[in-house]
Design a protein around this nucleic acid. Structure first.
Lengths: 241, 241
DNA sequence: CGAAAACTTGATTAGCATCAAACCAGGTGG
DNA sequence: CCACCTGGTTTGATGCTAATCAAGTTTTCG
């Protein structure tokens, strides 16, 4: 069975059309399912657009669904004991959010749309039933968990250590990966950069200004910009010495 | 069935004795198993002591087992792109390490014994067979994954932001939780503190000295110390203002 | 168009890194 | 047994990075 056929064409339910055209088929949580299962699930999956700045879910919310990101950038945010916001990782196309809901645990972090975002809401119940019948789904889930863990550890190792300039460069690298294959990436507000990289908005602003002067950042217009991948790599190399 | 009976008494295999006396029964990866399964698995589990500073597994190693920590403190360490060591979290009694092995993925971080450590080596094959027959094991695995993710995010939110003194205080809090219920906790070398908290050994040393003068740290002898929990909390509160 | 919000830039300061020099404990060998 | 070395630690002096304080400037939006 080819990837293209994973989601069946020509069924009547409106969500079936959305799933059929879904760009994240490579996110194969439901990839290995037989057609019978596939037809059944469309009914329960809600495809929802969320505006930039909107919440996908918040800390206090009842944890009864997971969300697949179809497009856009999402930040996972905690409040630490000191009371300040703290971004623990960014998620993008294909990532699965809020898996703690599957274990009946409260959400450990809020999921906030950075850009306009398209997510699929998948109720806990549906995943539970499905994985009972289809053991392959469980393996997929575990892979997703491991992926999230790897992302969090990478964020820690790459974006929370070293001098401010290096951290900013690594954030831009991350953002350009999330934007791919689009040419223009999303630039966070200086305040959001500050929260992500543990620096003040002034420091963030100074570094961004410097990178524009150095032509690492190009065509900056509002919250979108193009980046010179070569120059970024070069800047990272010299910052890593 | 009571918790005490989870691991059956009086069976012949030497490892059965170790498991029967195992202190981490609350780590119930194998908790919900019927007796028949329990008897079978002892044979395949290796209980191994590791000296302080020793590796449980390294990055390059073939990932063919997970490890349960029975006692001691373990640090999970990555090398970032810049080439410096970076502790992504600490693990203790009851934690499950190296789960990526279950997915046939290379270890994402090295696991290094901070104190003398007792771990149980559980081959991937065993977990695979067991979870095929016993679906409850899979849920336990997912809970462990979520737990690791939560730990990593907490490390990020609490131990990698804020001024040096605050980070040190939070590390001491974490270490005293890992040591519990023992009265004395393990103090890392100043160098290890530096790697965990992203500071120099000089800064770490100065802060530790200050905390001894303030009687937050008591009875420091080599790598062991007692901590005044009240004073620690008070110090944290005033650092968090 | 005017006000608010976001961003930029400059001047000063604080916190931590760096450099440098003791200090101490534990081993080793004379 | 003591002199000596070695690795970890402590403490001090100095310098750099980024925070803070304080204007400006641009963008956004009612």
């Amino acid at each position: 069975m080819s990837l293209i056929q994973l989601y069946r064409q020509g069924v009547e339910h409106p969500q079936a059309q959305v799933c059929a055209q879904c760009g994240v088929r490579q996110f194969a949580l439901f990839g290995a399912l037989p057609d019978a299962e596939l037809d059944r699930i469309h009914t329960h999956i809600a495809d929802q657009p969320i505006a930039a700045g909107g919440m996908i879910y918040d800390l206090g919310q009842a944890p009864d669904a997971v969300y697949t990101v179809r497009s856009g950038v999402v930040r996972m945010e905690r409040i630490n004991e000191r009371g300040d916001r703290c971004v623990v990782r960014l998620a993008g196309r294909g990532d699965l959010l809020g898996m703690e809901a599957l274990l009946m645990q409260p959400y450990a972090a809020a999921a906030i749309a950075c850009t306009e975002v398209q997510v699929c809401r998948i109720p806990r119940q549906l995943v539970a039933e499905l994985s009972a019948r289809q053991p392959a789904v469980v393996t997929r889930l575990m892979e997703r968990w491991q992926h999230a863990l790897g992302d969090a550890e990478e964020w820690l190792a790459e974006l929370s250590v070293g001098p401010a300039r290096r951290r900013m460069l690594r954030l831009l690298l991350k953002l350009s990966e999330l934007a791919a294959p689009a040419p223009k990436l999303w630039l966070p507000s200086r305040e959001d950069m500050g929260v992500m990289l543990n620096m003040t908005i002034e420091t963030a602003s100074r570094i961004v200004s410097a990178l524009r002067r150095e032509s690492v950042l190009l065509d900056v217009e509002g919250r979108r910009a193009r980046i010179d991948a070569q120059a970024l790599q070069a800047a990272l190399r010299s910052a890593d010495l």
